[in-house]
């Protein structure tokens, strides 16, 4: 596995008015590895992803991409670096086919005419490089695809643009057993193709099935970033719910040292 991170965040702070959602968060994403980002509702996973993808601006902290310090202010900045996010709701148009969806907003043209053959070829090559063989035709409407196939199209759309880092937000949340396996296999293959993959998930089985590293957020702080092979299922659950597990994780909180730690996370998913 590569030694230097492809994407490295350090000291990220983010507040919404008086509420500080992220405190001094750091995260390293390595090429060819799947980094699972876990944490309970409200831990700040979505906020962190939106900061990286340029939807939110960070209050403080540095982003290093491929060894260079970069500034990400807009989604366009993130896209030009090669950071793509696959959101939970996928953002596909049901009334368009697979190729049309994959190139939406970035269509290839010859003169003023859409260059359909080139787009179809590129889409086909991308799906083939991901070993996707489940779609009948590239000209199928997305409406007629299953949940797993839609997820596949959304991921392929993110990969199409020579992206370097792909962030997947709960890709298996709405899928059945067989489809979950297919999508996880695809996530693994992205990493094997040399991309840095960030997988946000609530499902410990998924996390242990595909990830190389686990980063656990607890109430807006990065509790720990560990190798998957070094931890157990139970330790990760503890990191998520309590922020520490044995000698891993955040130091015990000073004021609450005597009493019971409040394990109830804030309700809203910030």
């Amino acid at each position: 596995m590569a030694a230097t991170p492809l994407l490295e965040l350090r000291g990220i702070d983010k507040s919404f008015g008086p509420v500080q959602v992220l405190h001094d968060v750091g995260l390293s994403v390595y090429p060819g590895e799947v980094t699972a980002l876990v944490g309970d509702n409200g831990a700040g996973k979505s906020t962190l992803v939106k900061c990286v993808s340029g939807i939110y601006t960070m209050d403080a902290g540095t982003v290093t991409f491929d060894g260079n310090q970069v500034a990400i202010h807009t989604p366009r900045d993130a896209a030009s670096l090669g950071i793509e996010v696959v959101y939970q709701d996928l953002a596909l148009c049901d009334n368009l086919d697979i190729v049309q969806n994959m190139f939406l907003g970035r269509e290839k043209v010859r003169g003023i005419v859409l260059d359909e053959p080139t787009m179809e070829q590129m889409a086909g090559d991308t799906l083939a490089s991901l070993s996707v063989r489940t779609v009948k035709s590239l000209r199928q409407l997305v409406a007629s695809l299953s949940g797993g196939q839609r997820q596949t199209v959304a991921i392929a759309k993110a990969v199409l643009w020579n992206s370097r880092v792909v962030i997947l937000d709960e890709p298996t949340a709405a899928l059945g057993v067989a489809q979950t396996a297919q999508v996880l296999e695809l996530v693994r293959r992205l990493a094997d193709n040399g991309l840095g993959v960030v997988l946000i998930s609530h499902n410990m089985n998924d996390v242990f099935a595909v990830s190389d590293r686990i980063a656990a957020l607890y109430l807006g702080r990065m509790a720990a970033q560990v190798k998957t092979s070094d931890v157990t299922h139970a330790q990760v659950v503890e990191l998520i719910t309590a922020g520490r597990s044995g000698n891993l994780g955040l130091p015990p909180e000073k004021p609450a040292a005597a009493g019971f730690a409040d394990l109830t996370p804030p309700g809203a998913d910030l």
Binding site: D125, L127, A128, S129, S131, L138, R188, D192, V210
Partner: peptide
């Protein structure tokens, strides 16, 4: 961690 083989070639239609 299992490694999947990456095979190329067009989508079979």
């Amino acid at each position: 961690m299992t490694t999947m083989t990456t095979s190329s070639g067009p989508v079979q239609v």
